[in-house]
Design a binder for these strands. Structure first.
Length: 693
DNA sequence: CTTAGGG
DNA sequence: CCCTAAG
């Protein structure tokens, strides 16, 4: 039976977009994991924020553009505009900077040219350039985005495409559904590039800016791509490890997963959001609330990636595109802000990226208890990840890989229009930004409170500390205005007070707050820092562990408790789960005698009747629950099936292990067949058991 | 509360 | 061991 089951879910390796909904029992967790790891890249959030602020003004104009696009008609005007922008950008960072912007610009330029006289090569070069740029500057996510952008451009100009098909096709998702592949390749490249990049870390602020800038732009600009990218990204991230990240949410919310609910249309929307900001991911999660309760439940589990996949391939909706355009402009400004923030830190931050990762579990829990109706808390603080570098001079150099934007919780009625949804998101972001952001510096898990200390005094000058150096974006005074949906009342409430937050921290929800630092793959250096959040939020032991896996460990995630809270939106009724820091039970290895008793009981009763086993053999052992017995049996079976050299812990007599195998084989066999009655027919205990096969 | 499984 | 999903 066991075997059978395994086979059944053996599909594990690939991502299944649909799975989420399925019964959990299925245990496709394995597959999920993968997905999880891919975190979506919401990275952009930070950038978004900046844009948002300015956004309002431009939005109008951008909208106009969008409209055009959506119409499907390519308007020269628009094109022109884009091109111009791109070129401008390009000029800025032509050289080394090779920032995304440049890439884009080049892409645009390329398009232009193509229109005129397309040359395949040309496009090629462009393509390459783009990648390079991306990789160098940004995180993989970005680069992906960039790629997308290019794609967009291409599609628009069909002519161009036709002329130089080879290149274009590869790039653009629109053409083929196989975006993923394409992306992957790109990603890798990027990663490599990143690695290089890191080595050179001495970027100046200006550079940083430029780098970021592009990214942001990119995202917004080409919505379509974004959607795709989001998907892709996640996958890439897997490689990263952690991933817990977060990726999935967005999609989920959108509903794609839900699938059926496409009505939502959501895919697109979600993607958009992502494009905007890193938060989006989170936001998506929130969104899932929007979905029916069932979805919502599901949603949390879904990974961003998953979604995206399904969505990703799909063609982008015109709307999305529109949106993106809009944001594009906005974004430009955003970067500046970020930059400033960086400066603040006084260190030289080379680049800030946003990352989005989210924690997934906690939210779920919270939800569970709360029930659908309630809103979720979301916010999170930004996390900064940095790679430390050694500094020769007395300068401390490091890069911040990403900042996480606090999560936004958004609730909108199903009947709300996409436009209103966008607006809502924008408003939420704007509210946060308007409140101002503060940068928190976390060293080895502790927040540095004294701003007047020198880095030297703080220890930030030591490379080992740099590994655990983290930054947080904290909403300033922030009042987060509630996002509203036209109808729904329940939206989020602005931030709660810190205290509340803290309190809540104890609850599962809090956990959600914490992020995983998963992102990065490109590990220039690997550093572990577990330190991170623990300090801050007490609760979530698990997360940290999880992260360990990933290389990116470097990234620190520190959330200031406060922040999180601040952003948090709605509270639910949480179960009284407060803060129990649930401790893990102390480990109590089974003694040989216990194993013996267990084996004997299982031989008679069969595996699967743990309660009876418990009663029969461990009645008095309060610390041994039937689950423990079941687990022990599981491990015994495993232990018995591996080479003695690989066994650890107190050695279990081979004789017992043999019995374990025999009993296991016996009961496995029976269960699959007789199913029910064997109880009466205990395994022929004596050694005879020989695998009753 | 039990089972069954994945983490 | 923990956590969950499902019965």
């Amino acid at each position: 039976m066991v075997l059978k089951k395994r086979l059944e879910y053996g599909f594990g390796g690939y991502r299944l977009p649909v799975i989420p909904r399925g019964p959990r029992s299925v245990r496709r967790r394995g597959s999920q994991k993968v997905e999880d790891s891919r975190i979506c890249a919401f990275e952009l959030l930070a950038a978004v924020a900046g844009k948002l602020l300015q956004e309002s003004e431009r939005s109008d104009s951008s909208n106009a553009v969008e409209g055009k696009v959506s119409s499907g008609i390519h308007s020269d005007e628009i094109k022109q505009k884009q091109l111009e922008e791109g070129e401008a950008l390009r000029s800025e960072c032509l050289d080394q900077g090779s920032c995304v912007e440049s890439a884009i610009a080049s892409g645009l330029a390329a398009q232009k040219r193509n229109l005129k006289s397309t040359s395949r090569e040309f496009s090629h070069s462009i393509y390459d350039n783009v990648f390079e740029c991306n990789s160098i500057t940004f995180r993989s996510d970005f680069s992906k985005k960039v790629g997308h952008d290019l794609k967009l451009g291409v599609p628009d100009n069909k002519k161009a495409v036709d002329k130089s098909p080879s290149k274009v096709e590869a790039v653009s998702p629109n053409y083929g559904e196989s975006c993923d592949d394409y992306i992957d390749g790109g990603t890798e490249r990027r990663l490599e590039a990143e690695g290089n990049h890191n080595r050179n870390v001495d970027l100046t602020v200006d550079n940083t800016y430029s780098l970021k800038y592009p990214t942001e732009i990119r995202v917004d600009t080409f919505p379509l791509i974004n959607s795709d990218s989001s998907v892709q990204l996640p996958s890439h991230r897997d490689s990263v490890p952690n991933a817990s990240f977060p990726r999935h949410r967005n999609n989920v919310k959108v509903g794609s997963r839900d699938d059926g609910e496409n009505s939502f249309g959501c895919n697109r929307p979600s993607s958009k959001i992502k494009a905007f900001s890193p938060q989006p991911c989170l936001g998506h999660r929130r969104r899932r609330k929007l979905l029916t309760s069932k979805y919502w439940k599901v949603a949390p589990k879904l990974k961003d990636c998953e979604f995206s996949n399904s969505d990703g391939c799909m063609k982008p909706i015109s709307h999305c595109r529109k949106t993106f355009y809009t944001s594009e402009r906005i974004q430009r400004e955003g970067p500046f802000k970020k930059r400033k923030l960086c400066y603040h830190s006084s260190t030289t931050a080379h680049d800030l990226e946003e990352s989005s990762e989210s924690i997934s579990n906690s939210p779920e829990k919270g939800v569970k208890g709360d029930k659908p109706g309630s809103a979720r808390v979301v916010s999170s603080s930004v996390v900064g990840r940095q790679a430390s570098f050694q500094s020769r001079d007395s300068h401390v150099k490091f890069s911040i890989r990403s900042f996480k934007v606090p999560e936004l919780y958004i609730e909108v009625p199903e009947t709300a229009t996409v436009c209103s949804l966008k607006r809502t998101v924008m408003e939420a972001m704007t509210a946060i930004l308007e409140g101002g952001l503060h940068i928190g510096v976390i060293v080895q898990g502790k927040k540095v409170k004294d701003d007047n200390k020198t880095l030297l005094q703080t220890g930030i000058s030591h490379s080992d500390v740099l590994d655990t150096l983290g930054f947080t974006l904290e909403p300033g005074s922030a009042i987060v205005s509630p996002l509203l949906s036209p109808k729904d009342p329940p939206i989020l409430p602005p931030c709660e007070t810190h205290q509340q937050l803290n309190r809540s921290a104890a609850s599962p929800i809090l956990d959600s707050v914490v992020f995983n630092a998963t992102f990065e793959t490109s590990p220039v250096t690997n550093m572990n820092h577990d330190v991170e959040r623990k300090h801050e939020l007490v609760p979530s032991p698990t997360e940290v562990q999880t992260e360990g896996t990933s290389v990116d460990s470097r990234a620190l995630v520190a959330l200031p408790e406060v922040h999180v809270e601040a952003l948090a939106v709605v509270p639910m009724n949480q179960k009284t789960k407060q803060p129990e820091l649930v401790q893990r039970r102390t480990r109590r290895p089974f003694s040989v005698s216990e194993v013996e008793a267990l084996v004997e009981a299982v031989e008679k009763l069969g595996a699967g009747r743990w309660r009876d086993v418990k009663l029969r053999a461990f009645e008095d052992a309060d610390h041994r629950t039937y689950v423990d017995l079941k687990d022990k049996w599981k491990t015994l079976v495993h232990t018995a099936s591996i080479a003695p050299q690989q066994r650890r812990g107190e050695p279990v007599p081979q004789e017992l292990l043999d019995r374990v195998l025999s009993a296991h084989a016996y009961w496995s066999h029976h269960q699959s067949k007789l199913h029910g009655k064997h109880q009466a027919v205990p395994l022929p205990i004596s050694e005879a058991q020989v695998e009753t096969a």
